[in-house]
């Protein structure tokens, strides 16, 4: 019974990871791809690790630590990637409505230091 719960959690995690992969293929530009990758992989990883904890109760504490590090590092890497992408002027999807960051940079260049 416990193993069944663990298996279901791991299956759910795998579904989220698959969605993340599909999102990477289907999204229109780098930034939306990063978004798809960050969220679905975070929950997918967490679910798989929790499922693993059902199989090996002795590992629970270490797995909690794994979840903690995933939650800490995943957003940071997505933040760094998107920031770098924006800095080298990676084109955004044609559907993009507004870019407050580029506007802010323009006013900074025009008006000097703020």
């Amino acid at each position: 019974m416990i193993e069944l719960i663990g298996s279901l959690l791991i299956l759910a995690g795998a579904v989220f990871l698959f969605s993340a992969g599909l999102g990477l293929v289907r999204m229109p530009d780098s930034f939306t791809r990063i978004q798809a990758g960050t969220k679905a992989t975070t929950l997918g990883n967490v679910l798989i690790v929790v499922g693993l904890a059902f199989y090996h109760p002795g590992w629970t504490l270490k797995l909690v630590l794994v979840i903690f590090f995933v939650l800490m590092t995943n957003p940071v890497s997505s933040h760094a990637l998107s920031r770098a992408a924006h800095r080298i002027r990676t084109p955004m999807a044609p559907a993009t409505v507004m870019d407050a960051l580029a506007d802010d940079q323009k006013t900074n260049e025009a008006g000097g230091a703020t």
Binding site: S19, G23, M27, P28, A36, A40, A93, A95, M98, L101
Partner: peptide, 13 residues
């Protein structure tokens, strides 16, 4: 969004 037949989004910053 990912499973929508057509991805129709308007991203922005």
């Amino acid at each position: 969004y990912v499973y929508a037949p057509r991805i129709d989004i308007k991203p922005g910053i």
